[in-house]
């Protein structure tokens, strides 16, 4: 019997689950919505499993890697290092440290607001694409939100890889048009008196939002404050958490 696993052959789930076999007939019902799948291969009657066939774009990436490697333009170890860095070392915890320090260190705050690239590099956070960091602080009068309408520019060294919604067409188009409504969908209801400003990232400039420090956090240490700073609060689609 062939085992057919409930995973989509058109996307990552097959590769991750590692149970889908290319010779197993894919079930239309379990394909992710919107995936244009290649035609299924011939259905084998035998159960000798050959290697899992990765999804189509994975094969395209492998082809590109192979070609570049043959031309001496690619060092696979360097790719692994980049993946390791972004998968495990770089993430919103970096930005949270910056925010907590801004809340507690007036000199650092001044430096960050004047030259964020320099300030965060002092903390060991560098932009790999040579981009400039700009910090924008929320105030009771103005709430700030970041988007990239062109693609998905994002302060990687401080926040890691952007979440899916940041990269979606819906967010990229709508937050500019109707920011208050989009924020409400994130659960952020702002008073009408607080203006909303939307910042469009570019290849050269990446924004970090400094959320307002929550009330009731006066005696907290920087490390404790870091725990209150969510990724969303540094994009502007959330607020810093109020301590329990």
């Amino acid at each position: 019997m062939l085992s057919v696993s409930p995973v989509c052959r058109g996307c990552s789930r097959a590769a991750q689950a590692e149970v889908a076999r290319v010779c197993a007939k894919p079930l239309d019902a379990v394909q992710c919505f919107g995936h244009d799948l290649p035609m299924p291969h011939d259905i084998h009657d035998d159960d000798h499993a050959h290697s899992l066939l990765p999804p189509d774009p994975a094969l395209r990436v492998k082809a590109l890697e192979t070609l570049l490697e043959r031309k001496g333009l690619l060092d696979p170890a360097a790719l692994d290092e980049i993946i390791e860095t972004y998968a495990h070392k770089v993430g919103p915890q970096n930005g949270a440290q910056v925010v907590a320090r801004v809340w507690t260190d007036a000199n650092f705050r001044t430096l960050l607001m004047n030259d964020a690239t320099e300030a965060v590099s002092q903390m060991g956070f560098y932009g790999r694409q040579g981009e400039h960091m700009v910090a924008i602080a929320n105030t009771p009068e103005v709430h700030n939100v970041v988007v990239c309408t062109l693609c998905s520019c994002y302060p990687w060294p401080l926040l890691g890889i952007p979440p899916g919604w940041y990269k979606s067409d819906a967010y990229r188009a709508r937050v500019v048009r109707e920011p208050r409504k989009v924020l409400a969908e994130f659960g952020v209801i702002l008073p009408e008196t607080q203006k909303i400003r939307v910042w469009d990232s570019t290849a050269e400039v990446r924004y970090l939002i400094i959320p307002q420090r929550p009330a009731g956090t006066d005696g907290m240490s920087q490390a404790q404050l870091t725990q209150l700073v969510t990724r969303e609060s540094m994009i502007g689609t959330g607020l810093a958490q109020v301590p329990q």
């Binding site: 590769a15 774009p57 692994d80 980049i82 972004y86």
Partner: peptide, 19 residues
């Protein structure tokens, strides 16, 4: 961070080729 291995590979390729 990456939902699939090929997402990570593709991402890293762009970062690498830029560098």
């Amino acid at each position: 961070v990456f939902e699939a291995p090929w997402h990570a590979q593709a991402f890293a390729l762009a970062v690498y080729l830029n560098e």
